Simulated scan of single mutants.
Amino acid sequence: MTTTAPDLRIGTLLRGWRERRRVSQLELALRADSSARHISFVETGRSRPSEEMVLRLAEHLDVPVRERNALLLAAGYAPRYAETALDDPSMRGLREGIDRLLRGYEPFPALVVDALYTVVAANRGILALLEGVPERLLTPPLNAMRLTLHPEGLAPKIRNLREWRGHLLHQMERQIALARSDALRELYDEVAAYPVVGAGGDTDREDPTPYPYLALPMVVEHRGRTLSFLSSISTFNTPMDVTVAELAIETFIPADGATAEALRELIG
């Protein structure tokens, strides 16, 4: 079979995803009901995979939906997944569902972000935590990472800023390794360069006292009270649209009764 440019490119991309997932050619072949020989031929450009095979391999390598379109294009096929704007009429049901979810979670904070941490929607619990943040940082489009780590944003109120900052930057690093997004890398470089300032000087502790929680909390000083939250992130199951696939719903669970009661008083 004559090797073409698309064959070589799809092979390189698939090999890259396989190596990132630390899966051998044999293991991938077994998962995808193929053979190690065929996987090898695809990766070296000796064989062009069918459209079905590209999608099957992408599924077993847990390739993000946006990157599955890139694989299909590299193999010479049309993209399979649409990328629909959230304000499109066809997204009305999704938008209304998100709004109901966020309202239903009040008084506790919750928000929805896209792949670049742009805030798509937020509830009154989030707005309460952002009280006192300068207006220029609240001008749309809002970015959750900037709002959290900027020295004039939420950062000065976070008592365990060094730990929480490290968690957020590590989260971004994992996403960059997965998606290799230039825009996400630029955002990472920006927020990682912000100076570290925090509430009460607690962020300067060399040996911070362990928190009595099962997961790292975000501890915030707000109106003279200490609020502690555990963060949970949810995504949509089996998305068939790039936009939907890249949405993430983050909810902040009160880590103690005092935090829950304080939020009820704040939001009403």
Rank of each mutant, 00 (worst) to 15 (best):
L184F: 10
P195R: 02
A177P: 07
E221A: 12
A245D: 15
V219R: 11
G201R: 04
A215N: 06
L214A: 15
D241I: 10
E206Y: 10
R205S: 07
P239F: 03
A192T: 07
L184M: 13
Y211D: 13
D204V: 12
F229M: 08
G224R: 12
I176Y: 06
T243F: 08
A215D: 10
E206W: 12
M218V: 15
P210E: 06
R185S: 11
R225A: 13
Q175H: 12
I176E: 01
P239N: 09
Y188M: 04
I233F: 01
H222C: 00
D202P: 00
Y211K: 15
T209P: 03
R223N: 11
R223C: 06
E190R: 01
A183H: 11
T203L: 13
N237I: 11
L230S: 05
A199W: 07
M218G: 01
P210F: 12
L230M: 04
R205I: 02
R185K: 10
R174I: 13
L227G: 06
Q175L: 11
D202N: 04
D182K: 11
E190S: 02
F236S: 01
V220Y: 00
R225Y: 02
V244M: 06
E173P: 06
T238E: 14
T243R: 07
I176H: 09
L178M: 12
V244G: 05
L230A: 01
L227D: 08
V242I: 13
R205A: 11
T209Y: 00
A215F: 13
A177V: 02
Y213H: 15
Y213N: 07
G198D: 06
S181P: 03
R223F: 03
V191N: 06
E206F: 08
E173N: 06
P239S: 11
P217C: 05
T238L: 11
V196R: 09
D182L: 14
L187V: 02
E173D: 12
E206A: 13
V196P: 02
V242S: 00
D241W: 04
E186Q: 14
E186T: 11
G200D: 10
G200N: 07
V220F: 00
D204R: 15
L184G: 09
M240W: 08
R223W: 01
S228G: 09
H222D: 00
L178C: 08
S234L: 13
R225F: 05
D182W: 09
V244C: 06
Y194H: 13
Y188S: 09
G200K: 08
Y188D: 09
Y194F: 15
L184K: 08
S232F: 07
D202R: 08
S181Q: 05
D207Q: 09
P210D: 07
V197F: 04
F236Y: 11
L227C: 04
A199T: 01
T203G: 05
V196N: 01
V244L: 14
L227W: 08
G224S: 03
Y188F: 14
A215K: 14
Y194N: 13
R205V: 04
L184S: 08
Q175F: 07
A215V: 14
A177I: 00
P208W: 00
Y188P: 07
V220C: 00
R223I: 03
E186A: 14
G198T: 09
R225T: 04
L178S: 10
P195F: 04
L184V: 07
F236A: 06
G201M: 04
M240L: 14
Y194V: 11
T226E: 14
Q175C: 05
I176N: 04
Y213C: 02
I176M: 10
S231H: 05
A245E: 10
